[in-house]
Simulated scan of single mutants.
Amino acid sequence: MGRTYKQLCLEERCEIARLSAGGSSIRQIAAALDRPPSTISRELNRNSGVQVGYKPSYAQQQMRARRWTGSRLEREPGLRRAVLERLGRGWSPEQVAGRLAREHGRRVISYESIYRFIYAQLTRTSDFSWRRYLPRGKSKRGRRGKRGGSPASFIEGRVSLDQRPIEVADRKTPGHWEADLMMFSKYGQQILAVHERTSRLLLGVPLASKLASGVAHHLVRLFEVLPQPIRRTVTFDNGTEFAAHLSLQSLLIKTFFCDPHAPWQKGGIENAIGRMRRFIPRNTDLEKLPTRRLRKSIAAYNNTRANALTSRPRQRSLLLKCCTSSVNPPSGLRRDDGWRSLAPYFAFSLRKAMMSARSFGS
């Protein structure tokens, strides 16, 4: 029969260090641990320092370093190509991991492994182009610190998020939106972005100014062409650009605001803007950005599934659930109308909203 070998564990290394410091010989240590003397001799020769001697924690680290053969994405070129190809198309690591698991019927790689691989490449190569594979494009992990005060007290008629209907939280009821400004490096350039919570649908309109009256007018232009069932509430942060939110009451839309310093409470639009940065970076000059490219960027976001495990476009569930209901259905549409008849209506509404908002801002 062949011999079987068992690696030394941390407890055994601690015992080796104690006995060695007490003056025990290699054979005495081997007898105490029921190990061959050659195992103890090799362990002491490999992991002993010239000045500090044998330390069990250092020996354990050395063992792990010798056994590490690189991450899976470094060892498997095919898997690396599949992951990087999807990341390059704008997918997040969570979506890539979910899609690979669905295609193979088992978990292939975790999203944390993908994040660690990208950040390891940034550290080892100092090539910061690797960060372009990440949704936020950050070269370091972590959150930014809080600074400054909150203008919440200057917003007239502000209603806290705590009073928002409970049905909004589970994302099952359509018609609840989140809004924010996508800012750019050049002064006076921003995009007004609105995001529907159920369908994850994103709409965006360039603004020439972020004055509260202008932002409110653009919001009214965007929402007035949509049916009432899909314009119920809008959630903002506490920026003064949304101080004229009461203008939306003419459309029977209720407005709510996040807690101070808590933009994560409207995480849908925050995530959407972060992902849009991959198509339209912060240093983009909106004056030189063609309208066609902006529309394509928004369409690329909307066509990317919010969850890689789903198989239907994100707009479909919203429109089929709302526009075909018996409450204020669009003219010419019946309850049994499908996506083919709804898509032209919604495309016309979206086109009309963007054109009217652009003409107002020009």
Score class of each variant (00 low, 15 high):
H195F: 15
L79W: 13
L134N: 13
G361F: 07
F242I: 08
R277H: 10
A308T: 02
A306N: 01
K321D: 11
S25Q: 05
G332K: 00
R132E: 14
N271Q: 03
P329I: 07
K146P: 04
G214T: 11
Y54W: 09
P227V: 02
D180G: 11
L219M: 14
T233E: 06
A193Q: 00
E43P: 08
I230M: 15
S362T: 09
K352I: 03
G137Y: 03
T255F: 07
M1H: 15
G23T: 03
S126C: 09
M276I: 03
R132T: 10
S362Q: 11
S38D: 04
G148D: 08
G70W: 10
L309D: 04
R66Q: 06
N238S: 01
R292P: 02
R295F: 05
T4R: 14
T304S: 12
S150V: 08
D34C: 12
A21L: 03
E103K: 10
S113F: 07
D180W: 04
I26H: 06
E43C: 00
R136W: 12
R99W: 14
T173I: 03
H245V: 07
G338S: 05
V327H: 14
R64F: 01
T235Y: 02
I114G: 01
R316G: 04
F154R: 15
L84I: 10
L222S: 09
D285A: 04
R116H: 12
V234A: 02
L181W: 02
E12G: 00
S110N: 12
Q62S: 00
R293L: 09
S250A: 14
F346P: 00
K55A: 02
L319H: 13
S185I: 06
T125V: 00
L202W: 05
S362I: 07
R334E: 04
R340G: 02
G157E: 05
R89L: 10
A244H: 09
F242G: 01
T291N: 03
K186C: 00
L333G: 08
S349G: 11
M355K: 10
Q190N: 08
S331H: 10
F236A: 03
R221K: 13
S25I: 00
K352P: 02
Q61M: 02
R144F: 07
I155Y: 03
S250T: 13
V220A: 04
A30H: 09
P260K: 04
K146W: 05
M354W: 07
I230Y: 00
A152T: 14
F154D: 14
P281H: 11
L222I: 15
S113K: 05
S24N: 07
R231H: 11
R293I: 06
T304C: 07
Y115N: 08
R132D: 13
R278D: 14
L161V: 06
G90K: 01
L222M: 14
Q62C: 05
R27H: 11
S153P: 01
L251Y: 06
A59P: 01
P330Y: 04
R89C: 12
L161H: 05
K55N: 14
E270P: 08
P229Y: 09
R116C: 05
R334S: 14
R3Q: 12
I26S: 04
C322I: 00
T291C: 07
L79M: 09
F128W: 06
A17E: 01
A308F: 02
L350C: 10
P281M: 11
A357I: 02
